[in-house]
Simulated assay, not measured.
Amino acid sequence: MFELKIRDTSCLKNGGVIGIILLKYMRLLHVESMDLHDDQPRGDVTGLLDEFGFSEGLLVESIVTTLKQNKEPHFAPIGVKRVGDRLIIGKLFKNTDTYRNLCSSPQLVINLTDNVLLFYLALFDDVPPEKYTRGGPKTKIPYLREADAIIEADALKFGDRGDFVTVELEVLGILVMRGGPRFLSRCKHAVLESLVHFTRIPIYMREGREATELVELIRHYREFVERNCPEVPYKFIMRDLEGKLTRMRGC
Rank of each mutant, 00 (worst) to 15 (best):
H37D: 00
A149C: 00
R27Y: 06
T113G: 08
P230Y: 06
L217D: 11
Y143W: 13
F164C: 09
V215F: 06
R100V: 06
Y132C: 07
D8R: 03
R178V: 12
E146G: 10
I237K: 05
E51V: 06
F2M: 08
L156E: 13
L23N: 15
M205R: 15
L175K: 12
L217N: 04
F119C: 09
H74T: 07
F224P: 04
Y143M: 10
P77Q: 08
K138R: 14
E231H: 15
I203F: 03
L192C: 06
L102I: 05
K188E: 15
E72N: 10
V165R: 00
L67K: 05
E130T: 01
F164G: 01
N115A: 04
N95D: 13
E231W: 12
K81L: 07
P41Y: 03
R222T: 10
L121A: 09
I201E: 05
L87R: 01
E51T: 01
L156V: 06
F236Y: 14
S185M: 09
K91R: 11
L144G: 09
R219E: 15
F124A: 05
G250C: 09
R134Y: 11
C11I: 04
V60E: 14
D154Y: 12
Y120T: 08
R247V: 05
T113Q: 00
Y99P: 03
E193V: 07
I89V: 14
L156F: 04
V45F: 04
V60F: 10
D163F: 10
L169E: 02
G15E: 11
D148C: 00
V232N: 14
E193W: 06
E231F: 07
V191R: 15
E32G: 05
V45G: 12
V45R: 08
